[in-house]
Structures are given as C-alpha cells and as structure tokens.
Design a protein around this nucleic acid. Structure first.
Lengths: 172, 172
DNA sequence: AGAAACATGTAAAATGTTACATGATTGT
DNA sequence: ACAATCATGTAACATTTTACATGTTTCT
C-alpha cells in the first residue's frame, strides 16, 4: 500500500481554487482548512518544488503558482482514491483515560481547556461562514459550507461532553 | 519546545493499569483506546526497550512488563504537562472541501462512508460500555466511561452531519 | 497436523515539525 | 526609520508506518 502524501492533495487542491504563492497557500490552509488540516512551510515548499518538477504546477510571471491541466488530472485521480481512516490521537482523552493517575482537579482543567477551545472554534467557524456569505456565490460554496458544518457539529459535541465530564468529575 | 513522544504516555499509562506483554499492550490500545489513539508494534517495542533501559519498566518472571515506582512518577509528571492541541487531519473533509473537483456523487459515497463508520463506532463503544459494566467497579471506571462518552458524542455529531451533507449534496 | 493467535523485534522509508537563514515589501 | 508581514527555502531532528523476520503457544 503506497502511502502517497496527503500534503500533495492539499497543495494541489488549494491551487485548483486560484493561483497563489506558497506563503498564501499556507495562510489559506491555516484559515479555511484550519479546523481539519494543517501544513508547515517545511512541507509546502518541498512539495511545491517537486510538483513543479513533475509538471503539475507552474510559476506565473507574477510569482503565483498555477495548476497545469496535468496537475488538475492528478488532483482528481488522487481525490478519488479511498480515504484512509486513521483514528486521530487525542491527547486530552488519553489523559482523561489515565485520570486516576492525574487526579480529578487536573482533569477538570483539561475539560475547561476543551470547552474554551470548542467555543473559540465555533467563533472562528462563524467567521468563515460570514466570509463565505460575503463572497459572490460560486460552485465551491456548498462544499466549503459542509466542512464548516462538520466543524460546528464536532465543536458542539465537545461542548456537550464538557458539561457531562464536569458533572462526573466534581463528584470524584 | 521538546516534543517528547506521546507514545511513552500511552505505554506507561497502559502498564499502570496492569502488567502485560507488549503484544497485550497493543491489543489493549487497539481495543479500549482505539477510538482516540493508536500505536504500532514498530513504536511499542522500541519504546518498551528504552523505558526498560531507563528503569521505568521491568520484566517480571512471567514475561509481563511492570511499571516501577520511578516509571509511575514519570507517568504522573508527563500526564500533567500541557496538552498540545493539534488539529487532526481529516481526509474526508479535505475531499469534501475540494468536492467541486471530485463531484457530488463521489462526495455522497464519502458521506456514506462517514455514516457507516460512525454507526460502527457507536456499536463498538456500546460494547466497551457493556464490558466496563461487567467488571467490578474500580477507580478507573468513571474515567474510562468519560472517554467512551466523548467517542459517542463525536460519532453522533458525524451522524448528524451526514444527514445534512446528504441533503445538500443531492441538490447539486 | 495445521491454522490462528501470541510474542518480539529490526530496518527502511515516509512523514512531519522546528529552527534557522535570508531578503523584499508594506504600513506607520 | 522601524516593525510587521510577505516570501522562499534548507537542515536537523523526531515521529510513525510498513514490511519483514522469527519463533512459540493454543485451538480445532
């Protein structure tokens, strides 16, 4: 099973929306994709260099990087590949699981952290929603909004859990 | 910022519950921690070897690995460290985000995948709950149940999202 | 007897983060 | 002038997966 990098996917996908510099690409990923993706410069630049060598990406006169037809074909075929489902590592839940060693008070602080992070997340997502609503409607909008919804549902789930967890932990 | 491995945490934590072999440790992680953690043999065995060299873990006569007092102290101090919050990479949402390139039909199949995975997840978690209820009540129980709740809330959030996503995608 | 599960490990390759270096452009 | 942001990259290091190798024990 060849595990081709998912970074390629994010990079090609980002450039499929509009040509931009590597720096702008990183900003875009941190902004809109921030709640379910991340990339560091240390990966973006080497990836862009390789994709350029392979003719998937070209640099325009103004410095921005643009997807070639070959790059778009590659993106489509990569997107169609089956998704690898990896249970993500959750450092908070790992600590709660071993909460007996950590103690109820420290666990409560972790719950607080989850709650404020989820609240912050909902604010950011509301901002993305507003941003999307400002732009002229395009073919990408429904897809972007679906990822926002997913982030919101997940954040609300964390808030609900925080309430339950706090109720349990104060009794210990 | 020294990024000491979180694998240490999972391994020490697992052995803090009861002594076991590396193989059993991996099974335990895949079982109970499966919905928010994973470790491969390629990491468990080298980690166990290092922790043994450092006197955190010793091998008993029956072959099982046991936490030493030093190991337990180390576990406690590592658990108390601030949690690094990394937005996990979500391959499905990445594909949905670029759904315009992928097409609505393929997106619907991804939604199906999320739904069946979430349903399966709820079944597994119900199983863990039943398992925990069978065992005599101990000091670990409330903590384990909190991680189960977190998994259930997250799974239900994915199910809700799947309904919304399907409604959106069938119109495209 | 044969299959499946138990058990331990290593090596290579891929993946990813962090820190550093360098310089241009823009805003105050 | 100065700070912040834009912009590109490299090198070192850490992490993680995958595939392979090997042998034992348990179940049918």
């Amino acid at each position: 099973m060849t595990r081709t990098s998912q970074t390629d996917l994010a990079v090609l996908g980002g450039l499929s929306r509009e040509p931009m510099t590597g720096y702008a690409l990183r900003s875009a990923i941190r902004g809109t994709l921030g709640h379910f993706w991340n990339e560091s410069f240390g990966q973006i630049y080497p990836t862009l260099a390789r994709l350029t060598r392979d003719g998937m990406v070209v640099r325009a006169q103004d410095g921005r990087l643009r997807l070639t037809p070959s790059g778009r074909r590659h993106l489509r075929s990569r997107l169609a590949e089956p998704v690898e489902v990896v249970p993500p590592r959750n450092g908070v839940l790992l600590r709660i699981f071993f909460g007996r060693e950590l103690g109820p008070e420290a666990c409560l602080r972790l719950v607080d952290q989850v709650e404020s992070e989820a609240t912050r997340s909902l604010e950011v997502l509301a901002g993305v929603r507003a941003e999307v609503a400002d732009e002229p409607e395009g073919p990408d909008r429904p897809y972007v909004l679906l990822t926002v919804s997913a982030g919101e549902e997940a954040a609300r789930a964390r808030l609900r859990w925080a309430v339950e967890a706090r109720a349990t932990l104060v009794l210990l």
